[in-house]
Write a protein that binds this DNA or RNA. Sequence first.
DNA 1: GGCCGGGGCATTTTT
DNA 2: TGCCCCGGCC
Length: 801
Amino acid sequence: MEDYLSELNDSQRDAVLYDDGPSLVVAGAGSGKTRVLTCKIAHLLQNGYQPHTVLALTFTNKAAREMKRRIASVTDKYITRYLWMGTFHSIFYRILRRESDRIGFPSDFTIYDSTDSKNLIKTIIKEMQLDDKIYRPDMIQSRISNAKNALVTCNAYDRNQELLSYDNLSKTPRTNEIYRRYQNRCVKAGVMDFDEILLQTNILFRDHPDVLAKYREQFRYVLVDEYQDTNFAQHLIVVRLCEKHQHIFVVGDDAQSIYSFRGANIDNMLRFKDHYPACKIFKLERNYRSTQNIVNAANSLIAKNKEQIRKTIFSENEKGSKVAVISSYSDYEEAYLVSTGIIDMMRDKGYSYSDFAILYRTNAQSRVLEEAMRKRLIKYRIYGSQSFYQRKEIKDVIAYFRVIVNPSDEESIKRIINYPARGIGNTTIDKLQKAAVAAGVSLWEVIASPLEYAVAINKGTAAKLQDFRLMMEDFRENNQRMPVVELVEYVTKRSGIAGILFQDTSVEGISRQENVQELLNAIHEFVSIRQEEGSENISLADFLTEISLMTDQDNEKDENADLVTLMTVHAAKGLEFKNVFIVGMENDLFPSQRSMDNPRAIEEERRLFYVAITRAKENCIITYAKNRYRNGKSNTATPSFFIKDIDSKYLLFPSDIELPLQSGSFSRNRNEGRKAYITFGRNPAWDAETSWSGTSDKNNSYEESSAGTSTGARRQSVAPLDTSGYTCIKNTKTGITDPAEKVNTPEALTVGDKVLHKLFGEGEVIELEGTGGNARVTIKFKNAGEKKLLLKFAKLIIRDE
DNA sequence: GGCCGGGGCATTTTT
DNA sequence: TGCCCCGGCC
C-alpha cells in the first residue's frame, strides 16, 4: 500500500505530497495525470482524511469509475464507497435533492437532457409565433446554456446590455423572453436541465450560508480532474467550497481544452494563479505514452498557439517513426488507404484490430470509413453520437418512469401520451398545452381535469385522456407498493410498449427489443447491487437519479474486444491507441469552416488536432483528400494548414507529394492511380472486394458500440456468468457466430429444462404459460430464487445435458 | 389523427 | 447523401 509513492516520478510525487494550500497540476498529454490524482487521494486517505470528507469531481462517469477502481486497488475497496467521487452533475444533483426544500424544487425533480430542452425550446418558439429559421432552436439553446453556465439568470440577462445588444445584432431580440418562458416551464414541470443543476447549486450556496457551511465542513479536500474544461458555474462552486480550508487540488492540460462550445472556459485554468496567488504549480512534462517523434510533432504544432501555459513535454520512449502524411484523391480513396494500411500493418508488424483508431473531425465522415472497413472485413466499432440512453425506445420507456416519479415532467408526458398510439394527437396536445400555459399550471394538471381548464375537446378524446390519466395513476399507486423490478415489468406491459415492440420483427425492431430488455436488466442489476450494499427500499426515483446523468456508452466487454475504433477526435480525448489515423485533414473541415474567422476558435481547433496526435503511442498517420463528398456534393479540398504548423522534420511525406499539391494527377484507372499514394506498399485485391459490396447485410462484421450495451459500470459487480452466447452480433462471415441460440418461443422449452439467464444465472423451468408474445416462463434459479419472466424478453439459453 | 413525400438543411457534444 | 419538418392527403 505504501508502494504507490514509489511508482511516481519526481514531479508527480511532489504534487502528491504537497499539502500546503491550493495546487494546480499542469499535466501534459500522457503524463500520468490520473495516476497523480488517484495517488493523491490514496495519500489523503492514508493520512487521516475520512473518505466522506474527500470530494473528487470529474467530467465523465467513466473517469470517476476508473479512478475509484484504481484507488480501491491501492487502498481498500470498502473505503472508496464513501468517497464523494463523481461528475459535477451527479454530485450536485445528489446534494440538490437533499436540500430541495431550500431551492423551491420538489425532491423528486427530474432531469431534462439536451433533447428534452431543445424540444421545449422549439415548442416555446412556436407558441411565440417566431420564425424558427431566425430563432434557430439549436442556437437559442446554446444561448440559454451559455447564460446559465455563466450564472446569468433570466433576470440578470434583462440587465445585461452586452447580451441584449448581441441578441439585437443577431436579429433575435426576444431571446431572453424565450429563456424566461423556458425557465418558467421547467419550474412548473419540476425539472432541471444539466446547466440548471450547476446554476441552482450556486444559488443554494449563495443564498444559504448554513448549507454552504455544512458542505465546506464536510468536504475538507476538493479535487478536480480536467480543470481546463470547467465552466464558470463549476469553477465558482469549487471556489466556494474551498474558500475556508483552501484544500483545492486541480489537474488539467490547457492544451487539451476542446469544449469551449459547451461553455468550458480555459481561463479558469490559465488564471488559476490569479485567483490563488499562493497556489503551487506542478508541471508534469514527461510523456509516457508516445514516441519522441509523436511528442515532438505535437509540441511543434501547439507552439503555434498564443494562449497557453508554457511547458516542455518530452518523451524518453523510442524515437519512433515520423508522422506520415498521406494524400488521396477522394474521401472514398482515403478510406480505402486507411483500411489497406491497417491490414498491412497488422500483417507486417503483428498488430491486432484494437491497436488502431481512426479519428475524424465530424461524425459524417464515418460512413465512408465504415464501408471501407466492412468491405475489407476489418472488425470495427463505431462510437456514434447516440448513446444508449438517447435511443428512442429507451427514452420512451424512461419517460414512463419519469412521469411516474414526477407527473409534471412535461416533455416526458408528451413523449408517452400517445405512445403507444392511443388516439391523442398533436391537436389535442396543443390544446392541453395552451390551456396549461394560460392557467400557469403543469400539463399534467390540465390532463387530470380538462374541463376545469376549459379545454375544447370532444367526448371521445376526453375518454382517451381519462384512460391515460387512470393508467398513469395506477402506475403511481403501484409504485408505492410494488418492488421496482416488478413495477417496471408491469409498466412496460400494461402501457402497451411490450406489445408494439414485439410486433416489429425487423432487424431494427429486434434491436429495439434487445435494448429495452437491456434497460430492464440494468434495473435488475441496479436493484440487486443496492440490496447487496444494504439499502432496503430501492425506489424508481433512485434508479432515475442513477441513469439521468449517465450518458456513457462504455462497457467493459466492449473495451476488451478486438476491434478497430472509429470516433470523433472529441470522443477520443483521454484514450490512447498504438496506431492512430487522423483523417480528413483539410481546410474547412479540420479546422472547421466555422472557426476560420475567429482566432480563438482556430486555437481550439489546433488543440483538437493536438489531442488527436497525442492519442498515438507508436504511429500517427495523417490523411487528407483532394475531393470530398459533403452535403451531397463533391467538393475540392486543400490540405489543412495545420499540417504546416507541424515542424516538417517530424513529418514524412511519402512519394513525390509535396504541399501544396499538384492537381489533376490522378489516373482514371483506380488501381494504377492509387499506387502512387500508397505508402504501405500493397496493391489492393479490388475484385475480391466488389463481391462483398453486394452483401449489404447490416449485421456483418461490425459492432455498434451502443447496441445492446447496458449501464456498463454495474455489470462488473454481477456474478460472472458464461456470457459467450449473448453477443448481439450475429456474424457468420467472419466467424463470430452465436454459439447458442436464444430461446424466445414457448415451443422450444419444456418444464424441467435447465436454462441459463444472463442476469440470474442457472435455473430450471418449472412452469410455462401463455402463447406467442405473452408466453411466460417460471424459472427456479439456483441463486436468484423463483422468477416469472416474459419469454420474449428473457434471453435464455438451454443447457444441454 | 396518422401517414407519406418533397424541400431545406447540414461541427464538435464529458453532463 | 441522409435527416427532420411540414404540408397535403386519406
